[in-house]
Simulated scan of single mutants.
Amino acid sequence: MSGGLGWPLLLEGQQPPGDPLAVLQSGCSEAERSTALRQLADAAAGGSPTALNQYAAGLFTVGRVDEAERVWRALQTERPGTAVAGLNLATCHLAAGRLDECARVLRDCRDGAPAGSRQRELAEWRIAELDEARNGAARQTRLLELRAAALRERVRLGLAGLEDLKQLARVLYALTQVPDSGVTGRDLLDAARRAREAAPGDPEVLEILVLGQLVAGSDVEFAAALRELERFAPHSRVLDMARRTRTDTGFQDEVRARSARMREVARRAFAGDRVAEDELRLESQKFPENFQYRVDLLFAVYNRGDREEARRLADGLAAEPSADHYVHFHIAQFYWFLGERERSRRHFALAYETAVTEGDREDVREAVRTVGAGDPEELGLR
């Protein structure tokens, strides 16, 4: 949470009319955007710090924040004295909600710039702005936490009415946007489902439920909830927002970039990187309905040799009412590695039953043969 704080990107030199970055900043068609990004990438290929900074700024402008971060990091590494790249990298961290990283980069920029220079003054101003925003956000977060605690107590005592249930879900939604708040997408979904039980056709409750599914990464109920919201509140702003997540190219670019980044985090975690494992654990807690994160964490922990935690993670996945083919397929193999043969076979059977395509079913049969779990046909996997 950055309290609405935002900083303009820093560029070097003048941008002539028709400059690719100016095109991106002014709003353009998808074809124009692709052309402008390609022009910026071609210019950056020569290694000029100015061109690399402009390419990163273009990526940032279209929402490809992770890619922009990589370019600015590389530029900082190759040219440690490039203050503009460091200040833009701090802006990148701010946009991604990584405020500790933002503060660290700003301090490095301040300490590395000459006394009295414009870069040092700008870094100092931004450090002060960030501190002020974080202090304000901390006060707001504390108020939200106190409100959530009071509402949860009303629920526990059986005193909560429908408005209390709605308010609790809204407060929890706000807290899911706060890094390290401890409130997960599962907490939000539980509150939204409780409100829905109290008022099944209430449009506001359905909106909260859709938001909960977006935050938790739940695809199982999402389509059905959207149809229900469309029936009861066809002009809902939340419905429009949810639809845009499926059609907005900028949003889709962000999703693809995040997906690629999380695949890299999972790869590093599996290779034994504990920092990456901790990040994967945090993301799986924030998005408990994203089974990919939880399965990746399970095998990273198992590969590290912590069978006790791996077993807890696997049992948690096995107990999920919405566990799908992907979950059953992977924990079946995990239980086989642990020597729990019958439990493994049960999950192979569930993986087969929940398979959507013939290719998925063949994957199950092949896995059964590979681990030596028996003849697939004898297990009913025909």
Rank of each mutant, 00 (worst) to 15 (best):
M1G: 03
L5F: 03
L5N: 02
W7T: 01
E12S: 14
P17V: 03
Q25E: 11
Q39D: 13
Q39A: 14
L40Q: 12
A41G: 12
A41Q: 15
A44G: 11
A45K: 14
G47H: 10
L52T: 01
Y55F: 14
L59H: 13
E67M: 05
E69F: 12
W72L: 06
R79V: 15
A85H: 03
L89V: 04
T91P: 01
H93C: 11
D100V: 15
D100Q: 15
V105I: 15
A113M: 01
A115R: 11
G116L: 03
G116Q: 10
Q119C: 08
E121V: 13
L122C: 07
R126K: 07
I127L: 15
L130Y: 07
A133M: 12
G136F: 03
R142E: 15
L143C: 03
L146I: 04
R147M: 01
R147Y: 00
R152D: 13
V171W: 11
L172S: 06
L175I: 00
D180S: 04
R186K: 09
D187N: 12
D187I: 02
L188Q: 09
R194S: 05
R194Q: 03
A195Y: 11
G201F: 12
V205I: 10
I208M: 14
L211V: 11
L211S: 06
V215H: 05
A216H: 09
S218V: 04
D219R: 14
V220H: 05
V220P: 00
A223V: 11
A224K: 02
A224Y: 01
S236H: 08
L239K: 04
D240E: 14
M241K: 12
D248M: 04
D248F: 02
D253H: 08
S259P: 00
A260N: 13
M262F: 04
R268A: 15
F270G: 01
G272H: 09
A276W: 02
A276V: 00
D278A: 15
D278K: 13
D278E: 15
E279W: 01
R281F: 13
L282H: 08
Q285H: 08
R294W: 02
D296N: 09
R307K: 02
E308R: 13
R312Y: 07
A314E: 07
G316T: 05
S322N: 09
V327F: 04
V327K: 00
I331F: 14
Q333C: 06
Q333N: 07
F334G: 02
E340R: 12
E342W: 08
R345M: 03
R345H: 03
R346H: 14
F348S: 06
L350V: 04
A351Q: 04
V356P: 01
E358K: 09
D360Y: 05
D360E: 11
R365W: 12
E377F: 05
L381F: 09
